[in-house]
Design a binder for these strands. Structure first.
Lengths: 240, 240
DNA sequence: ACATATAGTGTCATTAGGACACTATATAAA
DNA sequence: TTTATATAGTGTCCTAATGACACTATATGT
């Protein structure tokens, strides 16, 4: 006799399967003082207690309806950061990465403006922005060093063919600032003219008036991303 | 008094967390008779019993040391396909996609040569190669239609800037065959000359002699991928 | 032989982008 | 006030990639 789906689900007990631990983590970057920064939290529990790690944690079946909700909730709770344009990077799962056993993490990555969360981060001791170059030398929890490197690499690729790094800057920024940000991300100088041609072609920014001259030299024009611009890609590579 | 990590792990019981169901699935494509084909398996159990689905299944903590091993094992067991250059596509997780509850799937995708697994697929009734265009109209299990579309889109992007589609062809192939394959993948004609320039520049294939003329017209040169070529990318887009 | 079908090449025009000199406009110092 | 210098921004040439498309090459079939 055929079992119906309703009958199947009624007797079905998920506890019969010991599923792997399921976490979400986020590699969140910003740009400040000419440096790329990455957001870290200190682990307050075993395993890896006391080590710094990418913010994240267990998916909560009650609180989260999806992986996207889970990572937004975890980020918000732990660091105060809201990352509207967060993007899935990769998933890592094996029986080695967590001492508690088979573990899977779905990793997200985003660029955010420092201003959007500075006050929160400044006021708690277990969250901080670390310079990426320094974070590379740290003994991060689990396999988070490798994950962070993968996120950094993705960022580099994005910077080669898009203007995404604008998200890491304040709402208003100048083209020299954006160019410098890109140069840090791709780790090589960009021709000023090439860069500006691409900005013009992309037609994604609007002028918001001259920046008051706080330093020597000609003042630069300030821009902001046009309304409704969420993501955008150039056809060709910068340098490469 | 501080708890040590060893003490923590000793008393730690994973069954206290009800982790989401953890599966791996694969969108496997090939190219045959001028058409893009996708590999499907028929579900033999509830839920979605009797529906066709992307091959995949639960991660087995005993058998699999990692997600990569899990997807290779599942593919092999269910379809006989070995996909050496399989690639992670995306992970999907929410409380809607599986009637059994919160479920996460890590999706992989690959292009394989039909020959490498034809006999297996021919001999079992619950596995088949379906034309992609037809599969689109099917009522696949879970959210597999959306996942399949995402994999198709990734394939299209890859075809625009790489020669990866060569993996979907027999070991020896002609340039007109490869061009046609690319045209199907990106769904638009390619300039013959542009295509051949790129093949030459890439320097990834070697001649293996003239193809015997089975049809009208000048016979074409057969090629194979050079030894050691695994993945390769062009700088610029085809058409776009 | 000649029509036709398919494979493969030659070549020109367009365009993206690197190189780099040039102009523009500010502050600081003489 | 002039001049030095620093930074912003533009003009212009050269090269490389590639789209467009006509051309040559080599097979089959009548």
């Amino acid at each position: 006799m055929q079992e119906t789906e309703a009958e199947f689900l009624k007797k079905y007990d998920r506890r019969e399967y010991l599923a792997p631990l399921m976490t979400v983590d986020a590699a969140i970057f910003t740009f400040h003082g000419g440096k790329l920064l990455v957001l870290l939290t200190e682990r307050c529990e075993h395993p890896e207690k006391g080590k710094w790690a990418l913010p994240g944690g267990f998916v909560d079946e009650e609180k989260d309806a999806s992986l996207e909700e889970a990572i937004q909730r975890k980020l918000q709770e732990k660091t105060g950061v809201k990352a509207p344009y967060i993007e899935q990077l990769i998933s890592v799962g094996n029986n080695q990465r967590d001492a508690r056993g088979w573990s899977v993490t779905v990793v997200y990555t985003a660029l955010v403006a420092l201003q959007s969360c500075q006050s929160f981060v400044d006021n708690v001791s277990d969250v901080r922005w670390e310079m990426y170059e320094e974070a590379l030398k740290m003994d991060l929890a689990f396999d988070h060093i490798e994950i962070m490197k993968a996120a950094r690499e993705r960022l580099k690729q994005k910077a080669l063919y898009s203007m995404v790094p604008a998200y890491a800057l304040p709402e208003e920024f100048t083209l020299p600032e954006l160019q410098h940000c890109l140069e840090v991300l791709i780790d090589k100088p960009i021709q000023k003219k090439s860069f500006r041609r691409r900005v013009e072609q992309a037609d994604l920014m609007e002028e918001v008036g001259l920046r008051s001259a706080d330093k020597k030299g000609r003042p630069s024009m300030a821009y902001r991303l046009k309304e409704g611009v969420k993501d955008f890609t150039f056809i060709r590579n910068l340098d490469a």
